[in-house]
Design a binder for these strands. Structure first.
Length: 425
DNA sequence: TGGGGTTAT
DNA sequence: ATAACCC
């Protein structure tokens, strides 16, 4: 069945990218509808991480400092968004909803999902052909306002994709009350780029003839998803500033500078080519909780911070139903220059006798875990010397399903219903 | 400059 | 364990 798709149509895919509008702010407006028509920002520490469109009209931007935001917009209402629980829960509801349409759903952060809708499109195309219907209407915008050629099967498939994307957005709004954008194109890269072209609560389909216009419209290479900060810096050294520069740059030189793998991948990206599959995300690979602060400089404080982080984490793990087999402690040490990026971590296996206790309620797994984490801490920091931390993070990973023989009741039916994390089906 | 996540080396 | 990427 799926064989006929790839054989007949040269494996051309239809990919939808769904991107919720200012996600944290939307969740907060649902939690407290009084905030709905007021300028609202979500604050973490001294940063407004995102804000609603009322606030944006008044000049507030994402990742603005609270100080600047209040100056720009004194009426700005701020809610604290340091506990991600409500966002994480809503985020998984969106992914699960998309999963009802199609099994190939890949999460990107909390507010974006890729969906490979090739098969759904193919099914509808067959239905259309059998019913002898030759008219199909696009939903939403067409990038560049390009005309649709109704004799071009590639156009028709993307147009059907736009209708499916409309249904996605409709379902997300009807069932969860969230608005968002969508982009439809022939691969993940292009679907993501095109989803942002009309911005709140709209959608756009990209036809192949406009691909070069889209990718070349990016004024800087760091706007290409997959080309990050480091690669951009190295490319700038080579005189590569925009997408056209990268397209034209000699492959051999690029490969020597960045390695064959990265060079070939990013040069393909510069042409809008991306053959990476939509990989179903499934349940999370790790659970972590972190806190940043101005200063933490004694062992006692470290222990207190860790004890604050653990209960929330253990609760999430318990609800997930799987057992972690690895624990990791991450720290960030103060450094005046380069505040970003100097993180170190140590990890270790969780002793089997502790793993057993994870599923059970009211068993004291906390104190032995604190002991393990403090040992990891001492592997990084000589506690006899002065130290100055600005972040602590605890991460549980290497999650394994418990054997079905002794699966507790909780994990069982959370998985049937709506796990915040379980792929379930 | 948050509080998360993922994959590659 | 770290480095890179994503939000």
């Amino acid at each position: 069945h799926s064989k006929s798709v790839s054989a007949r149509s040269a494996a051309r895919r239809v990919i939808a990218h769904v991107d919720l509008d200012c996600f944290y702010a939307q969740v907060e407006m649902i939690r407290n509808p009084e905030l709905r028509d007021k300028p609202l920002g979500v604050q973490q520490k001294s940063i407004v991480v995102t804000c609603n469109y009322e606030a944006r009209k008044l000049g507030v931007k994402k990742l603005m400092s609270v100080k600047d935001a209040k100056e720009k917009c004194p009426q700005l209402i701020l809610v604290n968004g340091e506990d991600l629980t409500p966002y994480r829960e809503m985020s998984y509801k969106v992914t699960e909803l998309l999963g009802e349409f199609c099994p190939l759903v890949e999460r990107l952060g909390f507010d974006e999902n890729f969906v490979d809708i090739t098969e759904i499109v193919e099914k509808r195309l067959n239905q259309l052909q059998q019913s002898g219907c030759s008219r199909v209407c696009v939903s939403g915008h067409v990038y560049n306002n390009q005309a649709i050629n109704s004799h071009d099967i590639t156009h028709i498939r993307l147009v059907i994709g736009s209708q499916i994307a409309e249904e996605f957005r409709g379902a997300i709004y009807a069932r969860l009350g969230l608005t968002g954008c969508a982009g439809v194109a022939s691969n993940k890269l292009l679907s993501k780029l095109v989803s942002g072209t009309f911005k709140p609560n709209q959608q756009t389909v990209l036809l192949p003839e406009s691909c070069q216009d889209l990718i070349r419209s990016l004024d800087h290479i760091q706007k290409v998803p997959g080309i990050g900060y480091k690669t951009t810096k190295r490319l700038e050294t080579l005189g590569v500033r925009n997408v056209c520069d990268l397209q034209a740059f000699p492959s051999a030189v690029l490969e020597k500078e960045l390695g064959v793998s990265i060079a070939q991948r990013i040069q393909k990206l510069s042409y809008g080519e991306d053959d990476s599959p939509v990989t179903p995300t499934g349940p999370p690979q790790s659970f972590s909780d972190e806190d940043s602060f101005k200063k933490c400089s004694s062992e006692v404080e470290v222990k207190e911070k860790i004890e604050e982080l653990l209960p929330n984490l253990l609760d999430r793990i318990h609800k997930d139903g799987r057992q972690p087999h690895t624990v990791r402690l991450t720290i960030r040490q103060f450094s005046s220059t380069d505040k970003w990026f100097n993180r170190e971590s140590r990890q270790c296996p969780i002793p089997p006798h502790l793993i057993q206790k994870f599923g059970k309620e009211s068993s004291n797994v906390i104190s032995p875990l604190v002991d393990i984490l403090m040992k990891l801490f001492r592997k990084m920091i000589d506690v006899d010397l002065p130290f100055h931390l600005t972040l602590l993070s605890v991460c549980f990973s290497n999650l394994k399903d418990l054997p079905s023989s002794k699966r507790g009741s909780i994990g069982f039916y959370l998985k049937q219903m709506s796990p915040p994390s379980g792929s379930g089906k």
